[in-house]
Design a binder for these strands. Structure first.
Length: 489
RNA sequence: GGUCAGUUGGCCGAGUGGCUAGGCAGUGGUCUGCAAAACCUCGUACAGCGGUUCGACUCCGCUACUGACCUCCA
């Protein structure tokens, strides 16, 4: 197919490269998923949607994709007074819940948000807590290869030793010597040989609830280990694409590279892809900054910074209107611009079916369509794709108005490709109105019956009777009351 | 402080060594009983200062500003 035309930006080499899978037609894709100890916010939507587009597009190109996106439900130290305490455990204790109860709750909420955003489910969604054995196995492997050491029940990765043999920092562009001077104090510092060494296995403190037995200590896996262990388990020692947010580049992904290389003797990932951040007032939207707006709040409009509610599709479209490697700044004005643009696009989509072919096409449709796919092939340039879609919107509207013509063959192609591009590849759908339908019907019925009351007041019996008769014919029961009216169906 | 990005018209946001991004808002029209929608039209923006070039918003350098990472964070 056109598979060989896809070009993606590989963080590893800081340049665009032609995508060529290791074992065509199969593609292995791993993306860092959420840490489920809080509601997903707008920032979480970005990688989910970015890699959803990649997943969809790769499938369109004919690849057989195995998409793995993990759920992080264990580990990750918290950098505050409760030094060394597991995030999940802390939240659980505060709320008097079982850790797994918290995990379940937020995982379900995350899934619901993703469904609303029309993000396809990954092929496998492994949990870190379900892969402790694999992670321990990986620790042993790294130790056996001599790149880790034990210190008071914890196992640390020996960055210095590793860097003598392999280039530590090649992904994020760090230099080991510089790291020496720039690393802050962390828990367990005194146990490490070097401040930049990172934990593979951490001994649990007494108050730490989530813990597993091991030959080193009762503890929990290190902060970066789960992705290495699970990607290897489901995609193999070498796989095609690893994605995630730019903020994970260092130290998370750098450490993954080191772990995999230390364990296997070679790197595991061919293409690293990183989405940029969503900013709010020019600053990163993030948990630690406390300036985030949850997806739930976007959908309901229930947040001080939101002028109104924004539908999941508006949020999705908003994100797709920027390239995934650019930051995108949140504002009500920008959201509302997206909302209106999306509406125009979707209205054109609904006109497609009633379009009539006539004569010769007044535009070069194949050329525009070619540009659409060229945009996708160019590192998933969705904003460019969308700009061409709006050209097609103009075409659809003009043909519908009888101001332009389209040939039979082009019309078929237009329908097919608009559907493909808008629904299948961009994953945009017409918002479901079912929830509002009952309310809408109520409004419409009240309006109609009020008109009937007005007619009765004017003794316009003909109009009043016509309304009742037609509604009755449609299966409604209309009852006049002293106060006005009642209706049922 | 180190590393890496970015600075585009009212807002958002692409891209390119010379030729229209696109959306939203705004202008003036067509259409229309009115309105809306749709379509057409208009706006000549690329942080500042140097340099390379026939020509730079696009390449190079410097300056300013903003941000990301260096610590959990998408």
């Amino acid at each position: 197919m056109e598979a060989n035309k896809l070009v993606i930006y590989n963080t590893l080499n800081r340049q665009k490269e032609t995508f060529s899978p290791i074992h065509p037609p199969h593609v292995g894709l791993y993306v860092c998923g959420p840490t489920v100890y809080g509601d997903a916010h707008l920032g979480h939507a970005r990688p989910a949607i970015t890699f959803d587009i990649l997943f969809r597009y790769l499938k369109y190109l004919g690849y057989k994709v195995r998409y793995v996106r993990n759920i992080t439900d264990v580990g990750h130290l918290e950098n505050d007074a409760d030094e060394g305490e597991d995030k999940i455990a802390k939240k659980a204790r505060l709320e008097q819940l079982e850790p797994m109860e918290v995990v379940q709750y937020f995982t379900d909420r995350y899934h619901q948000n993703m469904d609303e955003l029309n993000v396809l489910k990954p092929s496998i969604e492994p949990r870190a807590s379900g892969h402790i054995i694999e992670q321990q196995e990986l620790v042993r492997k790294i130790m056996k290869n001599g790149f880790a050491y034990e210190s008071d029940g914890s196992i640390y990765f020996d960055v210095e030793k590793y860097s003598q043999q392999y280039p530590y920092g090649k992904l994020s562009g760090r230099v080991v010597e510089e790291l020496l001077n720039t690393t802050r104090d962390l828990d367990g510092q005194q146990e490490k040989k070097n401040s930049f060494d990172f934990a593979l296995w951490k001994k649990a403190k007494p108050e730490h609830i989530m813990r597993w037995p091991s030959e080193w200590s009762d503890g929990f896996p290190g902060w970066h280990l789960e992705c290495s262990a699970m990607s290897t388990k489901y995609l193999g020692e070498s796989f095609d694409i690893h994605g995630g947010g730019m903020d994970l580049l260092f130290p998370h992904h750098e450490s993954e590279v080191a772990q995999s290389t230390a364990a296997n003797g070679h790197e595991s990932v061919k293409y690293w892809m990183h989405n940029n951040m969503i900013t709010i007032n020019g600053q990163k939207m993030g948990k630690s900054l406390g300036n985030f707006i949850t997806l739930e709040e976007f959908f309901s409009g229930n947040h001080a910074l939101l002028e109104k509610a924004y539908s999941p599709m508006t949020v999705r479209f908003f994100i797709l209107q920027a390239h995934y490697r650019s930051t995108v700044d949140f504002s009500n004005e920008a959201l509302q611009a997206s909302e209106k643009g999306l509406e125009r696009l979707m209205q054109a989509m609904s006109k497609l079916d009633s379009m009539k072919p006539a004569g010769q096409s007044s535009v070069n449709l194949p050329e525009i369509l070619e540009k659409c796919f060229a945009a996708m092939n160019d590192d998933l340039n969705t904003p460019i794709l969308i700009s061409y879609l709006f050209e097609l919107v103009k075409l659809i509207n003009s043909v519908s108005d009888g101001k332009q013509e389209i040939s039979e063959a082009d019309l078929q192609s237009l329908k097919l490709n608009m559907h493909l591009l808008v629904h299948d590849i961009l994953g945009l759908k017409t918002p479901s109105k079912t929830e509002n339908q009952a309310e809408d019907l109520n409004e419409v019925m009240n309006l109609l019956l009020q008109l009937r009351v007005d007619a009765k007041n004017k003794k316009d019996w003909e109009t009043a009777d016509k309304i009742r008769k037609e509604l009755t014919r449609l299966g409604f029961t209309i009852k006049d009351t002293k106060e006005g009216f009642e209706w049922s169906k």
